[in-house]
Every structure is written in structure tokens, then in C-alpha cells.
């Protein structure tokens, strides 16, 4: 074990030269390269973090925007639903009103048609009854229908008693005996004389005016100012009309129930 000091000196020189060379060629460039790479990586991380922060911010902004859009959509939807409900209610109301109007119109028309039908029926029935009565009277008594009507009317006049007769007489006195007799047919002189004679119960000196009124269906009417005494087929026709009307109403209800 010996030390060669020349070799020691040479090795010291070699080692120091190697330190210097490696420092210039290796350690400094490599260290700087690693530092630059580390700085670059730090920059990239910083950039990535910055972008991530931006992305998070953007995501938050988009989420908030989405919430706003959803809220706006919900609002618009609710508003549209409300408008639709209002429109539906209004249309239903209008439809109900239209249906009600149509129904009222239809019922009015039905009433008018019913009234017209009943009027026609009454007229037809009256005419028919008159024809039947005339034929019956002709067959049974041989007398004219007018005679029977006049007799019936005279009978009614004579049947007046009490308050109605008093009121009639008071009116006749107030009118000065003037009174009017209307009939559905022309009265013969005999008929007029019999009527005048019957009217003596009402006034001592009756002044009777005769005229013809076709609206009196097979009847005679006495009018003294506001008081009226009449006999017509109308009462019977009214009963018939009421009965027919009741039948029509019952048929209409049955159809509605079906």
C-alpha cells in the first residue's frame, strides 16, 4: 500500500478537470433543461388550472343560464296553460251560450210552430165541430144551426140571475139601452126579433145593433159597454185545444227523455 504523489497530483488535476467539464457539458445544461421543463410543466398546469377554472365558471354560467331558461320555459308553459285554460273556458262558455241561444231559438220556433199548429187545429176543429153540429142539428131537429145557436144564446140570457144580470142591466141603463149583438152568421129577422124580445130582461127599451163577426166561431156575443155575454163554440174548442196541447207536451217530454 503505497502512494505515488505524482499520480495523486495527476488524479487531482484529472478530477478537477472532469468536474469542470461535466459542469459545463452536463450538470448545468441538464439542470437548466429540467428547470425549463419543470417551468413549462408548471406553466401548463397553471394554464390547465386556469382553463379548468374558466371551464368551471363557464359550466356554472351555463347551468345558471339553463336554470333561467328552464324557469322561463316553465313560466311560458304555465302562462300558455293558463291562456289555454282561459281560452277553453271562454270557448266552452261561448259554445254553451251558442247552444243555449240555438236551444232558445229552437224552443221559440217550436213554441211558434206549436201555437200555429194549435191555432190551425182549433180553427179546423171548430169548423169540423160546426159542420158536425150543423149536421146533427139538421138531422135531429130539422132546424137550422143558427136557430139552435140563437136559442141557446137566448136560453143563456134568460138563465142570467143575480149579480151578473144586475151588472148587465146597470150597464144597459148607463148606455141608454144601446147594445150590440155580433154573430158568426147573418141573423134573420125572426132571430133578431127573438133576440130583442129576450133582451127586454136587460133593458126596457133596448136599442140593438146587429153585425157579423166571423171570428165568433159559430156563436153570438152581446156587448153592453164593458159587459159581454156570449155563447160560442170557443169554450169547447179551448178544452179541445188544451187537451191536444197537453198531448203534444207529453210527446215532446217523452222524446227528450229518449
Amino acid at each position: 500500500m503505497q502512494i505515488d504523489w505524482i499520480t495523486v497530483a495527476a488524479q487531482i488535476v484529472n478530477f478537477l478537470a472532469l468536474v469542470w467539464i461535466l459542469h459545463r457539458l452536463l450538470y448545468r445544461p441538464v439542470t437548466r433543461a429540467m428547470q425549463r421543463r419543470a417551468a413549462d410543466i408548471r406553466d401548463r398546469f397553471a394554464e390547465a388550472e386556469r382553463r379548468e377554472a374558466l371551464a368551471v365558471e363557464e359550466a356554472d354560467r351555463l347551468r345558471a343560464q339553463q336554470r333561467d331558461v328552464e324557469a322561463a320555459r316553465a313560466g311560458v308553459l304555465a302562462e300558455a296553460e293558463a291562456e289555454a285554460a282561459a281560452l277553453r273556458a271562454r270557448l266552452e262558455e261561448e259554445a254553451r251560450a251558442a247552444v243555449a241561444a240555438r236551444r232558445a231559438e229552437w224552443e221559440d220556433q217550436l213554441d211558434r210552430e206549436q201555437a200555429a199548429f194549435l191555432a190551425d187545429l182549433r180553427r179546423g176543429t171548430a169548423a169540423h165541430v160546426a159542420r158536425v153540429a150543423r149536421r146533427v142539428l139538421d138531422d135531429l131537429a130539422g132546424a137550422a144551426l143558427e136557430e139552435a145557436v140563437v136559442d141557446t144564446f137566448i136560453g143563456r140570457l134568460r138563465a142570467l140571475e143575480g149579480k151578473p144580470l144586475d151588472e148587465l142591466r146597470a150597464e144597459a141603463v148607463a148606455a141608454g139601452g144601446e147594445m150590440a149583438v155580433s154573430s158568426a152568421f147573418d141573423l134573420s129577422d125572426g132571430m133578431r126579433a127573438r133576440l130583442c124580445s129576450a133582451l127586454d130582461r136587460v133593458h126596457d127599451a133596448p136599442r140593438v145593433g146587429f153585425d157579423r163577426d166571423p171570428a165568433l166561431v159559430c156563436g153570438i156575443r152581446l156587448r153592453i159597454r164593458g159587459q159581454t155575454v156570449q155563447w160560442t163554440v170557443d169554450a169547447y174548442l179551448d178544452d179541445l185545444q188544451n187537451e191536444v196541447a197537453a198531448q203534444i207536451d207529453r210527446g215532446a217530454r217523452d222524446r227528450a227523455a229518449e
Binding site: 502512494i3 505515488d4 504523489w5 499520480t7 495523486v8 488524479q11 487531482i12 478530477f15
Partner: peptide, 12 residues
């Protein structure tokens, strides 16, 4: 493996 070398390094 030379004592001279290790001595040189130790002196450094």
C-alpha cells in the same frame, strides 16, 4: 483501486 486515486479524491 489505487490508493493514489482515492487519496487524490479525499484530498479534493
Amino acid at each position: 483501486g489505487s490508493l493514489s486515486t482515492t487519496t487524490a479524491l479525499a484530498l479534493c
